[in-house]
């Protein structure tokens, strides 16, 4: 398995809106904490260290 960097979410707008909505009404500190929890949850879901390393590299734009 390797990191997917092509289109993988059928409803891009919906998924994106979920992310933005989740931050609605949060202070900067709350949002930062939320993002950190989200990253940790997704990282654990992925599990594969190679994929995580690829994602970390891809995030370095």
């Amino acid at each position: 398995m390797s990191l997917i960097l092509t289109r993988n979410t059928p409803h891009a707008d919906d998924v994106y809106q979920r992310l933005i909505d989740a931050h609605e009404g949060k202070t900067k500190a709350e949002s930062d904490a939320f993002n950190a929890r989200l990253i940790l949850i997704l990282m654990n879901h992925i599990g594969d260290e190679t994929v995580i390393a690829e994602a970390l590299a891809a995030a370095e734009i």
Partner: peptide
């Protein structure tokens, strides 16, 4: 520190976070 605190908060609810 934000990640550290996130790990601690999650560890209360979810097993996956405890090894962190």
């Amino acid at each position: 520190r934000i990640f550290r605190d996130a790990v601690l908060d999650l560890s209360e609810r979810h097993d996956f976070a405890r090894p962190f």
